[in-house]
Structure formats: structure tokens, C-alpha cells
Design a protein around this nucleic acid. Structure first.
Length: 998
RNA sequence: GCUGAAGUGGUGGAAUUGGUAGACACGUUGGACUUAAAAUCCAAUGUCCAUUAGGACGUACGGGUUCAAGUCCCGUCUUCAGUACCA
């Protein structure tokens, strides 16, 4: 009987679905285990073979944990809000909900055929109103909270209002906007409601603010910092400019320190933690304020700077402000005004990208103003320069050229003095920035101190004169939360008559996305939701509805509540920042999940996903979790105990060499070697092509130019065989414009009518439709089966590694499954056969048991270390050994199938049922490893002399080290080797080599 | 520049954490079966020398520690990823 994987896999997938085999219960006597995948965005292209890699790994682990007796939660869902469906809607007019639903259907079919043990009864979709109801609810909670630095947690905004009405804001230690003016309780109570609202907004954890944002004109939306790569948009690679807009922001900076500290208690990879640490960018130092007197107005100003080196304060010889700094205009002297304005204009013109590309050029202008040194009271010239960034710290630095490379270069360039404040250091060539070796000199009260001492003392002295204080600065910026898109969560927000944002009451959630005619921004530049006819919020008592502007204005004003709704939608990371909690109780209409469910499942034990989310999703979701923890909504403040980043499976692209730039030979493809020939001697090739031209009936385009640059063009990988040979005729049929393409082979011959060979060049790249290198898992499953696909993806290499896909190699694991099947389907008719008599003590039985227990040990270790690739090899070795031993014992097969079932569940279930079991293999207990089966009575020990292998000698295994030493020395061959000498030392490592040092 | 990861046959990758390097698989070559092909099975396969027996070399490069180094230490080079005028 043949290994009919198609039938087997279909049958068992049906069985699992019919019996809800993988449904997890929220109550169980078993210990819980939560295995989570990063849920996918359902794109129109469907899955390629790279996508399931992480899912296969998590599925193996989930199935393993079920065998171990855990109640396993292994859910899956869809991050279904996103740009591509919206772009498609813009092009075709099809509602993104329809596109998304279709894509999800494809995804589900593709996922199902691989045989994952997901509990689909818990599926979530972020674009589902019953789901985003709770995303909106969380937003409201954030709006209604402020961050109290005293209790170090988020608190209800009402507690802040109480403090304001009793004490004003002087005693409040909160994370808030830095522009807040102090006020007393009396003042607060005298403010009108709007003023109070405006002030509160500056404290809320989500707030509306005029911020400089990354605006992407091509996409018509704002992007977060992590959505920009190398100065262009991550999606599409469009240019990004800075622009001021009123936007919702998330006060993630309030959690900077806790996000940093939390990393210490979770088991994530060092690389990932490190990139989160860098992103948060904590630096400890001091803020120092310098007094400035503007020569024009005679007004006094203060410039605040942040420095990590307050110990070098006596080395300050100038100050530099970012060109965008607020004070620049006020302090610039009339003589310098022209130069300063010109410089500011020039910098403003430069795009982010230019500025990044050109960091070497030193530029700046003197403002004509001077600051006063807080200790020496000397005058310090104030410059502006674009090496100081407006967005970091205060946008101003105290420049210490002797201790900072950039300040040094700036000072050298503009001939500013460079005073030396380091003892025993030569700074004539370069700045000295080694903190560890620093000894301060020439610095009054800091003289002779090291970095640590001097820093402390400097801060103390600054505080004493009220010119500064110790300060910690973070690079982490508040996250912009508004997107000018249609296909995202609507905000539960309306604007009242005074224009202040108001939250819509929980009972009216969700605020559903309205229908629009066009998915583009409106003519007046409003986001796409501005196209909706009904978009005004109207509430009478406990009834509410969304109505048109006219209906809203014509409604009776008595007891009415409402206004225009927020037209922005939430960003992609909103829905994904809390979904792991929803899986615990996905259908709950009253809460994000019930308390019982969350107390039972608590957190994710294993989270698997790509490292590209390091500073996006994985940071935002930790932020929301901490917030929800502060509010008592969730029981833990870190939601994922362990995280593994799976690597990516890359595609192997195929390229053809095309005379792309030439209008003379536009459809001519030449082989690589021929191209090399061309590079060496272009004229030779020209002549050859000319001859060929004349000798052929083909109509080349007329001669126009000699531009013969070769372009490498992607060819569809399905047109190339495993020896890199292109199916030339297939290529011509592939696209109409290549119908008359001409291929020239290695020796300059024309390839046609199946004669001749054209070899493509290869390169490894990300799998993508546009590179024609996508391998579809559907094809693999139909050719080799899901079990082969699962085994092969694991076999390719370590989980975390990036590796290219190569379909040819799958025969290895496929043959293993066939071999295993054949071992138990021998004899005349090939029907299933196992030897059910108990194993005895014969050599063969001992060998079989040894194979089994070796496999148990290795596979268990491998799963626990997530080295799934090596356990696939272990299975193959076991199958080879059992075949060689002709062992068909039930006693061996049964545990072996349980070991195999996480990897290749279908074949394991099939053989398991053939063994007479009625239920699914998935809950069968994991086999117990027994070391006794691996122990032999004696072993051939390799004996070496001075590290060189000489002979082997059989020794009983239960001998002690000393006994082994004695036995080895007494041995005849040893004596022969020693030739009468006395050995210096005998090294015995149990189970390993015996080394005699002579 | 900084941070992190890595460098092993033609290829993907193993190596019990210092103990016989190259497991397992792909590919290649040869053979068996077949009218033939596919499939399947068997054998060989790090490099070099040697008919054989066997020997020498070999884990990016150069040193070192050790009876013993892919693994540990010092230095150099290369690749990949993230980040970047962060004061």
C-alpha cells in the first residue's frame, strides 16, 4: 500500500475539525500553556512557503506541550486592518471589508491544509466591530488617564482634577507636555470648562497636539518613526517630509523607564532587547541652563541644554542651537541676522535624506549672541548648526570641543578656541572622550576628579546655584496615533461646540466605520472618512446615532449631546497591541476578556514571530499591556514570557541578461559568459551580433544607438530547472512582449526549437511577487504533502536563521516518510503490519530499544531548545536504523509516533489509528526516556598517545576512572607503545578518549 | 562609527559545549532493475599524495593556552542585520 498523503491528510484534518480536537477550555485541572504566533495581515497574494515557518515551529511546540499534559492555548487570527486592502479599494472601488474577507478565506484554506493545531473557535479579526469595540474602549481608558510619577503608574484623570481644584498643579509630578504653565487651585477653579479641558489634555495618556509629523504625500498619511526606513516610507519607498499637524499622540514616553526595566524579566533574545533599549535610548546626565541677554531687546533668556558630561562644564567654549530652536530669532544680533536667516532657510530646504547622507560637512553660523557660563561667568558665543537636532533633548548643546568629536570638528572648522580640561591628555589632534580615563583639570572645584566624582559634584554645584539639575533623557518619542486612512479603527471621539474632543460613552461602542463613496482624501484635504454622508454624532439620553451634517444641525438642541466625529483612524498597531488578551475570551461582549479567563491564562508562555517588529508592535504592545495592568484590567504587566524570532525563508531568484538599454536589440538575452566576453571586447560582440543579424530572418529593431548596457531581469523561477537551465520556449510564452525574444547561449549560439542551453544567474532575495521567486505552499502540499512541507521547513536550518528555499531538497524528508510507511506496510499486499509480541532480550530487540531511547532523548532536548532542524535528522536516522534492524515492533513504533506527531501529525495519526487507538494521538503522553537502554556492557575506548590516536580497546562501562587507567596501562598494546617508558599522565574522561601522555 | 549575530565540503547544515570534524540531507559520479525513462535500491563522495596498505593537510586569516581547539584567549579580515551628527 502506497503512502497516500493526500487521503491521509484530508481525513485527519476533517477528524480534527469534526472533533474540535484542539479546542482549549478556560477551565482545566491541567497546567496551562499559551503558545502564540504573531497573527498575519491577510494580503491578497496569499501565503508563500516562507510564511508558515514560525507557525510550524509554534505548532510543534504546542503539540509537544499537549503530549506533556498541558492545557494548551494555541490560537490564530488576523491583523486585518491595513493599507493594501485600502489601496486596492482606491483602484477598484471594492470595499476593503470584502477584499479582506476574501483574503482571509484564502489564508484559512492554506493554513488548514498544513495541519496546524489552532483553536479556530477563538479566531479574532482586528477589523471586526466586535473586536475594535475594545480597541476603542482602550483608547478611551488612555484618554481618561494621566501618569503619576509619584506612584509610578497611570491613574484616573479624576484624581488629577481633584488635586488641581485643591492645590493647583505645583505639587503634581506627572508626565505631561513641557509647555505647562503653573496655576493655583483658585485659578483652576476660575478657568472655564474649555480651558480646564485644554489643560487636562496636556496630561492625558493620549492627547491631541500640534506635532511635527512624518508626512508621506504619496500615501497621503502620517507615518510613525518605525514606519520609515532610510528616510523613505517602509511601504512603497515614498519620500517623507516633516509637517506640522494636529494629531492624536500616545504618551509612551511615560513608560520609557518601565519598558526598559521590564526587559530584564522577560526571556527574549538579546539582540531584540538591545534594539528596544537603543530605541528607548536612555541617557543619564544633567540639564544646565545658560543665561543669555538679547542685545536688541535687552530681555534675558535661558537656554536649557542636556548633557551627559556635566563634568566637562569648564570646557565649554561655545554653544550650538539647532536651526529650528525657538530662541534663535530672539537672540540673533542685527549684524548676523542675514547670515542666520540664510542658513535656516538652507537647512529647511534639505530633506531628511540629504541631511542623513551628508553628515561629514560641517556647517553653522554665529548668532552674534553670548551666553554666560554659570560658574566662570565668561561669555560664550552662541552658534547655530545643523549637527544639533531639534528633536533630541532640548535642541541645544553646550559645546565642549576638547571632549566631544563633533564639537571638536566644529571648533576647528570655525577657529573657536579649544580649552583643555583634562590632565595629562594631548588634545592637539583630536578630542578626548574616554570617560574611564578622565581626570579633570583646569576646572576650579572639579580639579583632579575622575568622571564619576566630577559629574556628581558638577550637578551638586549646579543645583546649588539653581542653574541645572541631574536629568535622564530618553530618545523614545511619543507615538503619533492618527492616520489619514479609511481602513482602520475609527476613534470613539467627537468634537463639541467649543471644538474640544469628547469621548463617546462605552455603551455606544463600537463606533463602526461608515460607508464612503471614495477612499481618497476629500477635496478640502480631510481624511477619507470626510467622504461619508453620515458622520455626526447625536445623542439623546441613552440613545445615540450617527447622522448627516444636516440632520445634526436640524435636530432639536434640547438635551442634545454631540458634534462632528473624528475623521482620522487609528494606526495599524492599535489592534495588534492587545489581541493576545482577547484570545483568552474572544466572544465576551462586556469586557476585553473576563477576569477568570485572564487570571487563568495570564500571559503568553511562548511567542513566535519576526524580529522586524522589534521597535514597532513589540514595543507598543508592551506599553499598552503595562497601561492595562495599571488600570487593573490585566493581571500581568509583561504579556510574553519568552519570545523567539524566526528567521525568514528567502527566495532564489533567477535572472536573465537583457540588452535593456538598447533599442537596437531590445529583446535579446545573452548568457552570462557571453556577457563577460562583451565586457572584455564590446566590438567583437557587436560584430558577432551584426553577423547574426544578417544571417537571420528575424527582424531586429533598426539600429539607433550603441548603448549596450546589460540589465539583469527577473525570470519566473518556475521556468528554471534545478540545473539553472531556463525553459526558453516557456519564457517566450510567459509574457507577450517576449514572444520574439532571442536567447544566445554560452558559445554565442542562438537557442531555439529546444536546442541549446541558457543558464540563468541566481541570487537570494526576499520572496516577493515582483521578483517572480515565490514558491506557493499549495504546490508543495499537493506534490509532497503537508507533513513533508512541515518537516522540510524545519529541516532547512536553525529556526532563527535566514535561509533560502530550495524545493529540490524536499525529496529527502519526503523519502523518510515513505520509508517509515513502507517499514510497516510490507509483505504480499503491503498491508499494515506490526509485531505486537513484547520485546525480549535479544540483540536485535536491544538495538531497537537503543534506537528508540536515543531518539526520545534527542527529540525532547531539541524541542526544548527549539532546534527542530536536528530532530528531523534524528527521525531519519531512527528510520534508517529500524529498517536495517528490520524492526516492526509495536513497542517501538508507538512511542516513536508520539515523538513524530508534533512534526508530521497526519502520518502519525494515521499509523496511530492503525495500531488500534480510537482517539487522536495528540493527547497521548510523551514517552519516557530510560537511560538504561543506552548503556552497553562494554565499549571500545579509543586510546591515544600524546593526542594521537593509536588503537581502541574494549573496556567494561562500569569501571571507575582509576580502574580504567590501570587496565589501559596493563594492556599489551599500551606497553608496546610506551616501549619501556613511564607515562607522565593518563587522562580518562568517562565515555570519551583515554589519553596517555608519554 | 556603534550594537548584535555569524564565517565549517559543490550546497543546506551537524558536532554531546574542550574529546575520533563534516552527522543527516541535497547535489554529483558509478552500479542494479527496466525495451527505455521515471521511481526505487546499492556504492562512492573534504582536499592532496599513493595501484593498494596507508599518509599529509583541513573549520575565514595570523598567533597563543592545552596531552587535546571548529569550540577558549589575543590580533586581523569578511559577511549579514539593526541603528546612527542622541550631545
Amino acid at each position: 500500500m502506497k503512502y497516500d498523503f493526500r487521503r491521509i491528510e484530508k481525513d485527519w484534518q476533517k477528524y480534527w475539525a469534526d472533533n474540535q480536537t484542539f479546542k482549549a477550555e478556560n477551565k482545566s485541572d491541567k497546567p496551562k500553556y499559551y503558545v502564540l504566533d504573531m497573527f498575519p495581515y491577510p494580503s491578497g497574494a496569499g501565503l508563500h512557503v516562507g510564511h508558515p515557518l514560525g507557525y510550524i515551529a509554534s505548532d510543534i511546540y504546542a503539540r509537544y506541550k499537549r503530549h506533556q499534559g498541558f492545557n494548551v492555548l494555541h490560537p490564530q487570527g488576523y491583523d486585518s486592518f491595513g493599507l493594501p486592502a485600502e489601496q486596492y479599494a482606491i483602484q477598484t472601488g471594492q470595499h476593503p471589508a470584502i477584499t479582506t474577507a476574501e483574503n482571509i478565506k484564502t489564508y484559512r484554506r492554506q493554513l488548514d491544509q498544513i495541519g496546524f493545531s489552532f483553536d479556530w473557535s477563538r479566531e479574532v479579526r482586528t477589523s471586526d466591530p466586535s473586536y475594535y469595540k475594545w480597541t476603542q474602549w482602550i483608547f478611551i481608558q488612555l484618554f481618561n488617564s494621566w501618569y503619576n510619577n509619584e506612584s509610578d503608574k497611570a491613574e484616573d484623570i479624576s484624581t488629577l482634577e481633584t488635586i488641581f481644584s485643591l492645590e493647583g498643579n505645583a505639587t503634581v509630578n506627572a508626565v505631561c507636555d513641557d509647555t505647562i504653565e503653573p496655576f493655583s487651585a483658585e485659578e483652576w477653579n476660575s478657568f472655564d470648562s474649555k480651558k480646564q479641558q485644554q489643560i487636562l489634555l496636556q496630561y492625558r495618556l493620549t492627547y491631541l497636539a500640534e506635532t511635527e509629523v512624518n508626512w508621506c504625500p504619496a500615501l497621503g498619511t502620517v507615518l510613525a518613526n518605525d514606519e520609515i526606513v532610510n528616510g523613505v516610507s517602509e511601504r512603497g519607498g515614498h519620500p517623507v517630509i516633516r509637517k506640522k499637524m494636529t494629531q492624536w499622540s500616545m504618551r509612551i514616553s511615560a513608560y520609557a523607564e518601565r519598558l526598559l526595566k521590564g526587559l530584564d524579566k522577560i526571556d527574549w533574545t538579546d539582540a531584540l532587547k538591545e534594539s528596544q533599549r537603543n530605541w528607548i535610548g536612555k541617557s543619564v546626565g544633567a540639564s544646565v541652563s545658560f543665561n543669555v541677554i538679547a542685545s536688541e531687546t535687552k530681555q534675558s533668556h535661558q537656554i536649557e541644554v542636556f548633557t551627559t558630561r556635566p563634568d566637562t562644564i569648564f570646557g565649554v567654549s561655545f554653544m550650538t542651537l539647532a536651526p529650528e530652536h525657538d530662541l534663535v530669532q530672539q537672540i540673533t544680533t542685527p549684524e548676523q541676522k542675514e547670515a542666520v536667516d540664510a542658513y535656516i532657510e538652507a537647512t529647511a530646504k534639505r530633506s531628511e535624506r540629504d541631511r542623513m547622507a551628508d553628515v561629514k560637512t560641517i556647517s553653522g553660523v554665529f548668532t552674534g549672541a553670548y551666553a554666560i557660563h554659570p560658574f566662570t561667568e565668561k561669555l560664550i558665543p552662541i552658534w547655530i548648526g545643523d549637527y544639533v537636532l531639534a528633536g533630541y533633548g532640548t535642541g541645544a548643546v553646550m559645546s565642549v570641543p576638547c571632549g566631544d568629536e563633533r564639537d571638536y570638528a566644529f571648533a576647528k572648522h570655525f577657529n573657536i578656541p579649544i580649552p583643555n580640561i583634562f590632565d595629562g591628555v594631548d588634545i592637539s589632534e583630536e578630542a578626548f572622550s574616554d570617560k574611564a580615563k578622565t581626570v579633570i583639570g583646569n576646572s576650579d572645584f572639579l580639579n583632579g576628579m575622575n568622571y564619576k566624582k566630577a559629574t556628581k559634584r558638577a550637578i551638586y554645584e549646579l543645583e546649588k546655584i539653581g542653574q541645572g539639575e541631574g536629568k535622564t533623557n530618553y530618545r523614545l518619542r511619543d507615538a503619533v496615533f492618527s492616520r489619514q486612512r479609511y481602513w482602520g479603527e475609527p476613534f470613539p471621539v467627537y468634537y463639541d461646540e467649543s471644538g474640544m474632543p469628547q469621548m463617546i460613552d462605552k455603551q455606544f461602542l463600537p463606533i463602526e466605520l461608515p460607508e464612503v463613496e471614495k477612499y481618497l482624501p476629500t477635496e478640502t484635504g480631510e481624511p477619507p472618512l470626510g467622504n461619508a454622508k453620515k458622520w455626526h454624532w447625536l445623542q439623546y439620553g441613552d440613545k445615540a446615532e450617527i447622522v448627516s451634517k444636516e440632520e445634526f444641525e436640524n435636530s432639536s438642541p434640547v438635551g442634545r449631546l454631540g458634534g462632528a466625529l473624528e475623521l482620522n483612524t487609528m494606526p495599524g498597531w492599535a489592534g495588534s497591541s492587545w489581541y493576545f488578551n482577547r484570545y483568552m475570551d474572544p466572544d465576551n461582549p462586556n469586557e476585553i476578556a473576563s477576569k477568570e479567563a485572564m487570571d487563568y491564562w495570564k500571559d503568553v508562555d511562548l511567542y513566535i514571530g519576526g524580529s522586524e517588529h522589534a521597535t514597532g508592535h513589540l514595543l507598543y504592545s508592551r506599553f499598552w499591556q503595562k497601561f492595562l495592568f495599571d488600570k487593573g484590567v490585566v493581571p500581568v504587566d509583561e504579556y510574553a514570557k519568552k519570545l523567539i524570532n524566526q528567521g525568514m525563508i528567502l527566495g532564489t531568484s533567477a535572472f536573465v541578461h537583457n540588452f535593456f538599454g538598447s533599442r537596437r536589440y531590445p529583446k535579446l538575452f545573452i548568457s552570462e559568459s557571453y556577457y563577460k566576453m562583451y565586457k572584455d571586447d564590446p566590438n567583437l560582440v557587436h560584430t558577432k551580433l551584426e553577423t547574426m543579424h544578417k544571417g537571420s530572418n528575424r527582424a531586429y529593431e533598426p539600429y539607433i544607438d550603441y548603448d549596450m548596457d546589460i540589465a539583469l531581469m527577473h525570470a519566473d523561477v518556475s521556468l528554471v530547472n534545478s540545473s539553472d537551465e531556463l525553459d526558453v520556449e516557456g519564457f517566450k510564452r510567459w509574457r507577450p512582449e517576449y514572444k520574439d525574444a532571442i536567447f544566445i547561449g554560452e558559445k554565442g549560439e542562438i537557442i531555439e526549437n529546444g536546442k541549446g542551453v541558457y543558464k540563468v544567474s541566481r541570487d537570494v532575495e526576499k520572496m516577493s511577487k515582483s521578483k517572480y521567486n515565490v514558491v506557493n505552499p499549495d504546490d508543495i502540499v499537493s506534490d509532497y504533502g503537508a507533513d513533508s512541507l512541515r518537516l522540510y521547513e524545519m529541516f532547512l536550518g536553525p529556526l532563527e536563521q535566514y535561509k533560502p528555499w530550495n524545493t529540490a531538497g524536499i525529496t529527502g524528508v519526503h523519502n523518510f516518510l515513505k520509508k517509515l510507511w513502507k517499514l510497516y506496510h510490507q509483505g504480499e499486499n503491503g498491508s499494515f503490519y506490526v509485531d505486537s509480541s513484547p520485546l525480549g532480550k535479544s540483540d536485535g530487540d536491544r538495538e531497537a530499544l537503543k534506537t528508540l531511547h536515543k531518539t526520545i532523548k534527542k527529540v525532547q532536548e531539541d524541542i526544548e531548545n527549539f532546534s527542530f532542524n536536528t530532530s528531523v535528522s534524528t527521525f531519519m536516522i531512527a528510520a534508517n536504523e529500524l529498517t536495517a534492524q528490520k524492526c516492526t515492533s509495536k513497542e517501538i513504533l508507538e512511542p516513536l509516533l508520539i515523538l513524530l506527531s508534533p512534526y508530521a501529525p497526519h502520518i502519525a495519526e494515521e499509523l496511530w489509528s492503525k495500531l488500534g487507538h480510537s482517539g487522536s494521538i495528540s493527547t497521548a503522553p510523551f514517552p519516557k526516556f530510560d537511560a538504561n537502554h543506552l548503556v552497553e556492557s562494554s565499549k571500545n575506548y579509543p586510546i591515544s598517545f600524546n593526542g594521537k590516536m593509536r588503537f581502541t580497546m574494549e573496556l567494561p562501562l562500569d569501571l571507575s576512572k582509576d580502574d580504567i587507567e590501570k587496565a589501559v596501562l596493563a594492556n599489551e598494546k599500551t606497553q608496546e607503545q610506551l616501549a619501556g617508558r613511564t607515562p607522565k599522565k593518563v587522562i580518562v574522561v568517562p565515555g570519551k578518549i583515554v589519553n596517555i601522555v608519554g
